[in-house]
Amino acid sequence: MIEVMKKVLESAVDRLQFQITTYLPSLLAALTLVLGAYLTALFVRWLIYKIFKGLTIDKFLRQSGVAFLVDPSGRLRATRLAAESAYWCILLGGVLLGLNVFGTDLTTQIVQGFVFLLPKLFVAGLILLGGTWLGHYLGRSMLVWAVNENFPTPRRLATVVRILIMFVAVVVAADRLDFAKQVFLSAFIIIVGGVVLAGGLAIGLSGNGVRRFFEEKREQSRESNERSLWSHL
């Protein structure tokens, strides 16, 4: 009995020893890598904040409207954006390296999957960001134009423009990610077809109203009394 117990204990200790000798160095190495990545990320972020003022990029962000897209107050600074991006990229890289140290099928699969997906994710993200920016820009342009032209329901028009552009961006991003391609494509075709049909019906059914609107506008611009005011700077 004692002999059996001794054997069991010895095998348990052996297993533990084996596991420790097998996985602990990997774990320690992984932790070291993550820690190293964390420290590097901290340092790089500090460095960027310290030395990289990003004046030119700040200007670009403001001019392109990205600053106001990400942060509506417009206070987004390139320095912060660059520093935070570098921080999270390095940290993510450290975690992936740490996982890779274990060399198991599962971790290798995770790392590989992520690495292969990363460029697609990046491109899809860019497409969504670009779509959001374009949607905002064109939506607002439509809004201002419709208000100045005294067009009916300007805000609805702007919203339609925004939604359409965002939807196009989502379809393209999904296509990049190979995610439910057919579903998005079909939905896109249905929606565009629907919009065209609705537009055609609207014009057909309310043709008189549309014509009246444009005639009124033309009449207004013809009215010489108003023109005399606006044609003199």
């Binding site: 403001r62 001019q63 409207g65 106001f68 417009g74 820009y137 607002r140 342009s141 201002v144 134009w145 208000v147 100045n148």
Partner: peptide, 16 residues
């Protein structure tokens, strides 16, 4: 100056 929106849009929104 700070380009809080596209410049043309800022100017056109001044009309009202």
């Amino acid at each position: 100056r700070r380009r809080s929106l596209a410049r043309g849009m800022i100017l056109r929104s001044l009309t009202p």
